[in-house]
Write a protein that binds this DNA or RNA. Sequence first.
DNA 1: TTGTACGCGTTATCAA
DNA 2: TTGATAACGCGTACAA
Lengths: 337, 337
Amino acid sequence: MSLTIKDIAKIADVSIATVSRVINNKAEGISEETRQRVLQIVKEHNYTPNRIARSMITKNTRTIGLIIPDIRNPFFTELVRGVEDVANRFQYTVFLCNGDKEVHKTIEYLNLMKENSADGVLLTVSDQIMGKPFQQAVEQLDMPVVLIDRGHQSLKFSGVYIDNVKAGYKAVNYLISLSHTEIGCIAGPKEIKNSHDRLQGYLEALKTAGIPVNPEYIVHSNFEMEEGYQAAKQLLTRHQVTAIFALNDLIAFGVYQAAEELGLRIPDDLSVVGFDDLEYNRLLSPKLTTIRQPIYEIGETAAEILLKQIQGRRRARVETYMEIELVVRGSTARFQK
Amino acid sequence: MSLTIKDIAKIADVSIATVSRVINNKAEGISEETRQRVLQIVKEHNYTPNRIARSMITKNTRTIGLIIPDIRNPFFTELVRGVEDVANRFQYTVFLCNGDKEVHKTIEYLNLMKENSADGVLLTVSDQIMGKPFQQAVEQLDMPVVLIDRGHQSLKFSGVYIDNVKAGYKAVNYLISLSHTEIGCIAGPKEIKNSHDRLQGYLEALKTAGIPVNPEYIVHSNFEMEEGYQAAKQLLTRHQVTAIFALNDLIAFGVYQAAEELGLRIPDDLSVVGFDDLEYNRLLSPKLTTIRQPIYEIGETAAEILLKQIQGRRRARVETYMEIELVVRGSTARFQK
DNA sequence: TTGTACGCGTTATCAA
DNA sequence: TTGATAACGCGTACAA
């Protein structure tokens, strides 16, 4: 068993109160002499206070939870780093939880946050999970919460997002500017708002340009590579699209595979626009034209908002929208009939 | 503030001991009637016991720590999933910590594990970090520890590994069987044992085949894509190698980029073998020949060993070596002079 | 079957 | 400047 404050007190021949004062740097009311002596003994015996016991009193744990839906998506791992860096700067540690897109796992972690008395929670969950049981769990959390990437009107929390409609519009509008009219779209799950919004941007861009919408050009997937590949194969064999807007880069990766299998050259036969700008982009040839999200900064911003809220320095609900940009690379070309 | 056991006791008009018995499923000594009534009230008020207070008594937190060096490397995220799945099956939750290859961050997390009284820790750290301060922190942990992927003779813990020497030998021997003799190698950092061992396999394979070793064919990197790319470019411009053994897939990804830039076709002009078999492999064309590690299973196995140790069912130190295999794909071809 | 009371390791309050 | 002690929320030995 580890040493306790009691042991240290005994060894130093002072009261536990004195030891407590020393290790908590209480400035006043302690002689330099005893302070040094206690400090010495603490170091010697390598005593570290038990955070659990401490937090029973102080009611804070200097810990924040970060719940993500899919640790295998590089988007989220980059997000994690932004959050961690800010948290550490504030001397907080991050309890990282991978919900793995499963409802029960996510709720489990949410409860854990409460039971472990995290000081606050950063939430990035798919909308599929946003059912009654989940919402209930969130409400019972009774601590500051900041949403990331995926907002939910039903939850009255602060959040950090991008304007997905605008981003979708921008992507598709670019394809239109290259004279494409037969533009397919491979979306994420129907229930996910991000997917819905980006799709909305796609529709608006077509509408503005006076290009009729063909519902068969729109296919759904689960935002992962494999299903993106399947969806692309289906779309490309059934319809003569000359361009595809993939609602995230993983899907775009799948499109590349499908195109290769079907003997379609990118960008000569098919233009592709992605979304996120993941690092693995570099593996593609040609490299992917995509909407760049400032992922790391999104994480940073969300963590800052949460920590301010925890420290009681902000109470109002704020919704921050980060800027995105279209990065043009080799996967898009002017349509030649 | 959340409800406490006291509140529930008051509402149900019983003692806290009774409530405690109910929520802990103490079979004996409680009437079905009161049990139901208490259960009802617990559900109604959505009471969850405070884990922190509980663990002060029980001395266990049903939490294990998992420390990884780089959350951006898909190898580790896959590992995480294996660990999580086993832990959850055992009703344990995983405290995931990303050391980000930094000493102070890693040590910080290690201390956190102790202070938060995790029941055990799974450790995957780079050897660079394995200095005095780190070792000290590990020793003071005073809880079960299982090492993953990277062993350290200096630490007397159980661990789950693969035979990196053998794996390296296998990879290079395959290249030799394809008549290659000018085989380059892009390693990880010199101080990392995994890298050292795989390199050792490379050397042994050459030696066995009677092929002289050219030290200039061996270049080091940091196991990441960018440096892999840089190293490959350097190697390929200076020397006429016909094949490259990349000590992990991220490096191999970099080799592909370098080859493309230099106008070398894979596998016609250059054969490439990687290590890990990451999913992003699918983005490459041709697909990568590589050593497959059972990453998910490594995570599972390590978690099982740790949990058994925690539950006191195993005390002996065990070193488990998992099987690897060479997966032949399109990036390797017979050398034609 | 149920309740009382103590202890877990710490911080905070008040008195000395 | 220092110390004794209550309190945090819970589990459990022991008593009723």
